[in-house]
Design a protein around this nucleic acid. Structure first.
Lengths: 333, 333
DNA sequence: TTGTACGCGTTATCAT
DNA sequence: ATGATAACGCGTACAA
């Protein structure tokens, strides 16, 4: 089984098996249409030559790449991992492969990346966070490729949508704190569009409830322990009476917990801390972290199903899914 | 600019521009070979029709997919992220795209996944951790696709290699602890092949140095806070005199720090803790975590360069790179 | 059940 | 500088 310089093709296999190329193709895609005997001959030839089908050729012929692309702001950071992982495994199960692209929270780069992604004619594209660039939207629309936007909920999606409302989260967390008697609220948060939506909703609800102004500390790095520590320090300096803080990620929240302990501030006695994401470590933090849970696994799963349904020509009756969120109460509030 | 049902092709553009298909192709790939005037006409037609080249067709024609595949045990967990991120951006810069595959630490799945990956005829494949399955190795070898193995160092790589020695790490950490007067050592670790290499080397060196037996606590989930807490608890129960613990990830180490604080064990006074990975949060842990640093960004960068060099026919003079590691001393030891 | 002919969209090659 | 032709490897449609 020495490997030739040029990978073998259906033709090569056909020659060896003494059949036509079509028969080899059928042996792979519709084996029940062949005589058991020929099938066996072909399979032996395939084995012997180490034949591997060329997906570019079949993709070209069928206009189906069996490929799905996912665009993300970043791979670093725990936020999207659960979703990507479940997306990947769901797609694999369904016979598709996943290609990733990182936009780095940069609209121009997103648009450029989308162009090269569309060149591959993927069967679907998963956008994480609503598409930032107008160019990107246009390219996506023009491409006619099925799109699923995720991690946000909008009324004007490009195509399909699996998300949740950041406004609803901001409102719910403000309600949660208020209902437990907190009045002086704070936020430690990153500064992307979704974070802003949460912050505005949080402030708005606090206002409606007659609470004093919310102290907001924005951080450049949305999910580092250090930023969480600094963010809390910042808030306690500017508004020492703050009794509850909403952090825009569990990592920030863990940083805040560490800073609180460092400063001798009792959690939850003096200060309540809430995270976002329900990362694996949340339950093991000291004290166990109350957090907003979003089911990333389910998002990935549903996104995969939507894309594949469309790719295979089925009609999707529910193209807009709000998967919601829940607040997991633990010891930090 | 209403998008037609069928994406337009070079032929369509050619018709509109009043030129041949080849001229359109040249307008994209060798614009300097055209009259400025024709170039302009073609570009207008491209713009007008929203033409996007089909990468499958060009890949088929050229036998170059401009695609690189990366195989990983898992996407969840911070370990490989830095590398993937840098791999992705380096490849993009060089005009390639990245496709990921998750093996889930499962050799059979790895082999199966490799088959489907090879079908796309990527220009290169990046393996993370030495290839587990014999089938996988064979398929890779037979495919003649350039391969870079990473995160480990072996003398018999499939093809190219960018890694570091886990044996050297185990030895170095044992030396580090011993040189600081620690005698009763412990390890909290995951249980994959690379972890085993570190553990064995750590124990061996401790033996050579005449230290008492090392207490090893293996954990199912290699990078969760909870496992770190449990691991340390386990070790302190079985060997209360342990004065230094090597954790196989920073997350485990952070869990150990939390557990130590919980139990009132002073770090580093009574117990020294070392992590692995130098995650972003290591420096902000309480106390700042001493850890083994591996430059994932550099691994990704180098792997991308090796693959692309080979894909473009250049000879690679240094196909085996040991990027080493360093111990970053902070306050936890 | 098996084979023949053609086309998917692109680009290298050779010709003009 | 531009065009005609052919080929990359596969699978549909039709024929035998």
């Amino acid at each position: 089984m020495t490997s030739p310089v040029r990978p073998s093709t259906v033709q090569d296999v056909a020659r060896v098996a003494g059949v036509s190329a079509m028969t080899v193709s059928r042996a792979l895609n519709a084996p029940d249409k062949l005589t058991p005997e020929t099938l066996k001959r072909v399979r032996e030839a395939i084995e012997q030559m180490g034949y591997v089908p060329n997906a570019m050729a079949s993709g070209l012929r069928l206009s189906r790449a069996r490929l799905v692309a996912a665009m993300l702001p970043t791979l670093v950071g725990p936020v999207f991992q659960e979703m990507i992982q479940s997306l990947d495994s769901a797609l694999n199960r369904l016979g598709y492969q996943l290609m990733v692209g990182c936009t780095g929270y940069d609209a121009a780069h997103e648009a450029e990346l989308l162009r090269t992604v569309i060149q591959r004619r993927p069967d679907g594209i998963i956008m994480t966070g609503i598409t930032a660039s107008e160019d990107g939207r246009r390219a996506l629309l023009a491409s006619r490729i099925p799109v699923v936007e995720t991690w946000d909920y909008t009324d004007a999606p490009i195509d399909m949508l699996v998300g949740f409302s950041h406004v609803a989260i901001g409102t719910a967390v403000a309600d949660y704190f208020a209902s437990r008697g907190h009045r002086q609220l704070g936020i430690v948060s990153g500064n992307d569009a979704r974070a802003q939506a949460r912050i505005q909703a949080f402030k708005a609800r606090a206002g409606e409830l007659g609470l004093p102004p919310v102290t907001v500390s924005l951080t450049a790095s949305p999910s580092t322990l250090g930023a969480g520590r600094q963010g809390l320090a910042d808030i306690l300096m500017r508004a020492p009476a703050t009794s509850a803080v909403f952090c825009s990620s569990d990592t920030l929240a863990l940083g805040a917990l560490i800073e609180a302990q460092h400063k001798g501030v009792d959690v939850p006695g003096t200060l309540a801390v809430m995270g976002l994401g329900d990362q694996e470590f949340a339950k093991d933090a000291p004290p166990a972290l109350t957090t907003v849970r979003v089911d990333g696994t389910r998002i990935g799963q549903l996104a995969a199903e939507l894309i594949v349904s469309r790719a295979e020509g089925r009609t999707v009756d529910q193209p807009r899914i709000d998967i919601g969120f829940s607040i997991v109460t633990r010891s930090s509030t």
